[in-house]
Nucleic acid binder design. Structure first.
Ligand SMILES: [Mn+2]
Ligand SMILES: [Mn+2]
Ligand SMILES: [Zn+2]
Ligand SMILES: [Zn+2]
Lengths: 143, 143
DNA sequence: AATGCAAATGCAAATCGTTTGCAATAAAAA
DNA sequence: TTTTTATTGCAAACGATTTGCATTTGCATT
């Protein structure tokens, strides 16, 4: 995996290696998704991108998200209701707890659950390609 | 809970009790969703409904699904990609394994996973309102 | 059974998130 | 630099779902 001067993964090099052209919009979008720690949707990414280059189009954001998804750079989530939301891949796998009141997304990971999922699939005669575990909850109001 | 002559839940009575009018389209749609054991989408329900009443509209199907969902009669699922799919509620809670090749939906239930979810949410200071666990897999091809 | 009225319907048009065709532009190969 | 080819921005198309509105219907009331 290619690293850059700061020791982080160099996505541009990774993509170039895969024969993908590094264009101005792609460089900007890539920066946005790799620097944020939230789960923005395409329009939000577009909004942030426009601040850096006034004539980036929403189509390009969508096209780039699909490209990066196929390339494994980002992950797409389809939380209940709304549009797809994205996050930079590469960290360890985790699932999400969505605060139904604020829309906040909290990440968590349970190895036990992950393992149980595999067991279940195996018993049913399947191999899991991916899965989705989303908890929708409300902050507990202590009595 | 109101039961009818056959001992099953009488949805029409339940709805009427809640001040909801039992119309011809609603009666038909209700029959369809309570008799099927698959997970049809709105258009499929519409298709089946039209066989019984040639001038039911897709709008009414959508409106009725929302109504029944709010009333707790059915559950809505948003599996990856496609449109919302519905199933009759009332049976015990279960989660789904989706065959990515055929679109088939297999139901399963793991008390262990359910319990672990509660623990996780509690640790994070949340109460779970509902959750979604979907496994996307492919039939294991035995060597 | 006939009446009255709010609720529900069908239809067409609107909306939302997303994708696509196409001519213009820019990346990278030569 | 020139050439080749991928990528862009824009507008129009898209699929799923919702909505406005005039008409019909369920059903509580006579
Ligand atoms: Mn995340
Ligand atoms: Mn089910
Ligand atoms: Zn997981
Ligand atoms: Zn569950």
């Amino acid at each position: 995996m290619t690293k850059n001067a700061t020791g982080r993964v160099d996505h541009e090099a990774e993509l170039r290696k895969a024969g993908i052209r590094i264009t101005r919009p792609r460089r900007i979008i890539l920066r946005i998704v790799s620097e944020t720690d939230d789960h923005p949707d395409a329009y939000e990414i577009f909004r942030r991108a426009v601040q850096e280059d006034k004539n980036i189009s929403l189509s390009t954001v969508y096209r780039t998200m699909k490209l990066l998804e196929e390339h494994g750079t980002i992950q797409r989530h389809a939380f209940a209701g709304g549009p797809s939301r994205f996050e930079h891949a590469g960290e360890e796998h985790h699932d999400h707890l969505i605060d139904v009141e604020t829309g906040d997304v909290i990440e968590f990971r349970s190895d036990k659950i992950e393992k149980l999922q595999d067991e279940i699939a195996r018993e049913l005669g399947y191999d899991i390609l991916h899965h989705k575990l989303e908890l929708y909850g409300r902050k507990r109001r202590s009595a």
